[in-house]
Design a protein around this nucleic acid. Sequence first.
DNA 1: ATTTTTTATTATTATATATTTATATACTAA
DNA 2: TTAGTATATAAATATATAATAATAAAAAAT
Lengths: 94, 94
Amino acid sequence: MEDNNKLAGFFKAIAHPTRINIIKTIYEKNICVNDISKELNINQPNTSQHLAILKNHNLLIKTKKGNEACYKIKDEGIIKLIQEAEKLVEKLEK
Amino acid sequence: MEDNNKLAGFFKAIAHPTRINIIKTIYEKNICVNDISKELNINQPNTSQHLAILKNHNLLIKTKKGNEACYKIKDEGIIKLIQEAEKLVEKLEK
DNA sequence: ATTTTTTATTATTATATATTTATATACTAA
DNA sequence: TTAGTATATAAATATATAATAATAAAAAAT
């Protein structure tokens, strides 16, 4: 039952359209904050904040190159989980 | 991208410890509000509210017997998804 | 008919999350 | 060293979610 808190925290981390978008966008990439910000058309601080939330839940890995910060998916399991959730949502609608 | 809103809404629906608990508890049962309320030790209005959220996201099916309302899991896919999420969270911690 | 039981809804208050704006830090380049 | 670029953090505001308490609605039992 206490584990439900941890799990709920994980779901909360991905329960945001922008963060789902970030995960999908950086999949198979190692991409820096500025490029994510431009590509998704969200401002820099908000981008950093969402990235921090995902990183804090161990979904992303951060590396630094000079003054740039690059992020990538830690484990592709999150991609699979999102895909399965998408299928389930479709199925549940019927 | 618009689909991310729908998906985020789905994750939000399950991103709460009590609601995860409800899903796990009523799995393979058809159980009325009062019994859920007692079993999980949450008050009746709060129980009804959480059930309504899950039902609104098509996760539960509601039936009425006399003056009782019974709820059951609509599709066991949600159980599988939760189990996979639990495994993933464990894996990500390492 | 009235009371009891069960559930749902509404209103209130409390708490959490999100977005924007401003500021700070770190590194690079001139 | 100063100016520029990239990122993070903090503060302020707005919005959303949650929990409790109060009320309403529906059916059952007396």
